[in-house]
Design a protein around this nucleic acid. Sequence first.
DNA 1: CGTCCGTTTGAGCTTAATCAACGGACGTGG
DNA 2: CCACGTCCGTTGATTAAGCTCAAACGGACG
Lengths: 266, 266
Amino acid sequence: MAGGPHEAPRTAVPSRCGNCAIRGYSPCGGLRDLHSLDRLDRSQAASRFVASGSAVFGQGDAATSSFTVLTGWIALSDTLADGRTVILHFALPGDVVPLEFIGDRSSRTAFAIDDATVCAISRARHDILRHEDALYADRYLAAVARELHLAYDHFVNIALSSAGERVIKLLWELAIRNLRRRPATGETILLPLTQTQISLSTGMTPVHVSRTLARLRKDRLVDFKNHRMTVLNVAAVERLAGISEDTMALWLGAMMRGPDQWIGDH
Amino acid sequence: MAGGPHEAPRTAVPSRCGNCAIRGYSPCGGLRDLHSLDRLDRSQAASRFVASGSAVFGQGDAATSSFTVLTGWIALSDTLADGRTVILHFALPGDVVPLEFIGDRSSRTAFAIDDATVCAISRARHDILRHEDALYADRYLAAVARELHLAYDHFVNIALSSAGERVIKLLWELAIRNLRRRPATGETILLPLTQTQISLSTGMTPVHVSRTLARLRKDRLVDFKNHRMTVLNVAAVERLAGISEDTMALWLGAMMRGPDQWIGDH
DNA sequence: CGTCCGTTTGAGCTTAATCAACGGACGTGG
DNA sequence: CCACGTCCGTTGATTAAGCTCAAACGGACG
């Protein structure tokens, strides 16, 4: 840990959010040009600061807006009537917070993992854009399809894997989506998660997450401590995690170029 | 089990698949009018018979078509390199087989749980329809959003619930989606699943599914035997399964009317 | 009539949850 | 400055849930 951890270097992109005056937020995570489309009425979108731990929206709230993460991490979660909670998904800068947009109230909660800013687009405007702008519609559909793919992958992970596999897959996914490349051995990556949040998204108890991380440290795969993951052995991690090329491409966002090609098809 | 089990009574609907000459297949499961839209070039869609156990498409196959289930049940599954398999979703008559349509090859397998017929629309045509027909685009997006919602719910189920809860939730979901209403105590419902398939979709072993079903039978919740589920106590089932109103509405497809309303909004 | 598949049941074992105590980091208020 | 509470992570001991291995059964089907 000589040089200390470094922020994920994000590729600078020409597009920016005119409203929010924040740039470089979205290399190709989903609605890459969501906020720079000419049709977007600037008065309709607004950036919003969300303090660490506080909610963007909660279960039962009116689902009036679509959100894109500009900075920080947003967790999408579901809490049952008896209080049991799961984290369904982590939305990183550039990602759309995956709203299912079914019915008029949200069935999930979105909260900030660390201090975050999000860009909101009203649902009415979102619907107009979808109908008037084919590119926007394509990108939005692609974003939802990506979330579906990630959700299925997550499901596979939790259904089949042992504790060690679940944790390492989650950490590896988040590292790659954050860095936008495969980490190198020896590298330290900032992942603003707590062990409790890892437990919520892997369906384990916090104590068992702690033991599992201790095991991963002892086996010299990764060392997760204080919101920082140090990669000790890339090969061993990838052997345990068993990540396919397709999955890697999905995390890197490379496949998101698909829809553009389809448009040109006919 | 006096009168024996009865087929799920499906509401007759005016729409039908012109190509496939099969009617009443899709009350409102997703792309309700997918095959009856005027714009649909009839020469492009074709019905296809899929024998029980055989695949509609497999992992790695070219993702060239979108499929809607006409009769029978289709399971969407994922198999890892080492052979471990999960069933991600069951598509019932009227449902779209949820293709993520990312990249040009399918990352999942779809196979028939019992003898089935599906209606295929080529991806090229699907893309044209999406761009030229706002209603089609809305319905397709709503269908993907619904699949995302179901996937998240499934994830919550597997992450938080005990074996008994998982199994009863799965059976209850399938019964309600099949019947399009809440079953009554004493009713017997045909669910063309095996215990092995239940185990694949709940992340358990077949032996433990057998024990869990034995327990549910002993506790007089449901009796699942020979592809037939007999409901012994609706109240007890719903207490254990803990189904919310929103979830019920999603299963019943009632919320799918959302998009139509949005269209009228602006 | 035998084979195969799905299911049942038993015994022993592994994994992860639970219960519990403790320690460090941090923030608050005296 | 220290005392205090809180949150998060660690560690140990114990319990329970579910898996593995194994044997056997029944129905479907050729």
